[in-house]
Amino acid sequence: MAVVGVPICVECGTRSNPCRCKIVGPTVGFLAFVVAAVVEWPLGVLVYPFKHKKGRKIMGHPATVVYPSVTNAIPL
């Protein structure tokens, strides 16, 4: 029997809030990363054989743009 849990990400040592620990932002950022990756990675694989640079940019988008922007938007 497998136990499925909700992923919880914790970022400590940040100065964006008084308690210096972020839980909500990184967790929501991770979930947004997963959703974007499910869509963008297969698309990037299809584009890569024709336009290498564009395919790499599409596949890297969840890690370089989606996760940081969502994580930084939520200060908790």
Rank of each mutant, 00 (worst) to 15 (best):
V10G: 10
N17D: 08
F30A: 13
C19M: 13
K54N: 07
A73Y: 15
V39H: 04
V70M: 02
F33W: 07
G44Q: 02
V10R: 10
N17V: 07
G60R: 05
T71Y: 06
V35Y: 00
E11I: 09
V28N: 06
G13N: 04
V45L: 15
S16C: 10
V47M: 04
V3Q: 08
E40H: 06
W41G: 06
Y67W: 10
T14F: 14
V70A: 01
P68L: 09
A37D: 09
F50I: 07
A36I: 03
I8H: 08
C9M: 12
G13I: 07
T14G: 15
Y67L: 01
V28W: 14
G44E: 01
I8A: 15
C12D: 13
P42A: 14
C21H: 04
R20N: 12
I8E: 05
C21V: 08
V24I: 14
S69D: 12
N72R: 06
R20Y: 13
S69Y: 04
T27M: 01
V47W: 02
E40Y: 09
N72Y: 13
L43Q: 04
V4T: 14
A37K: 07
H52N: 08
V66S: 00
A73I: 08
C21M: 10
H52M: 10
V35P: 00
K51Q: 15
N17W: 13
N72F: 08
A36R: 04
G25T: 02
I23M: 08
T64Y: 06
P7N: 06
H52C: 06
N72C: 09
L76K: 11
V34P: 13
V35D: 00
G13M: 10
P42L: 15
I23Y: 10
V6S: 05
S69N: 14
V47C: 02
K54V: 15
K57H: 05
H61I: 01
V24Q: 06
P49L: 04
V65R: 05
V35W: 00
G44K: 03
F50L: 07
A37L: 14
P26Y: 04
H61N: 09
V45R: 09
P26R: 01
E40Q: 12
C21N: 08
G60Q: 08
C19P: 03
Y48S: 07
C12I: 13
Y67G: 01
V65L: 07
L76V: 07
V70S: 02
L76Y: 13
C12R: 12
W41M: 14
L76G: 14
A2I: 11
K51N: 15
I58V: 12
P7E: 03
N17A: 09
N17F: 11
F30S: 12
F33N: 00
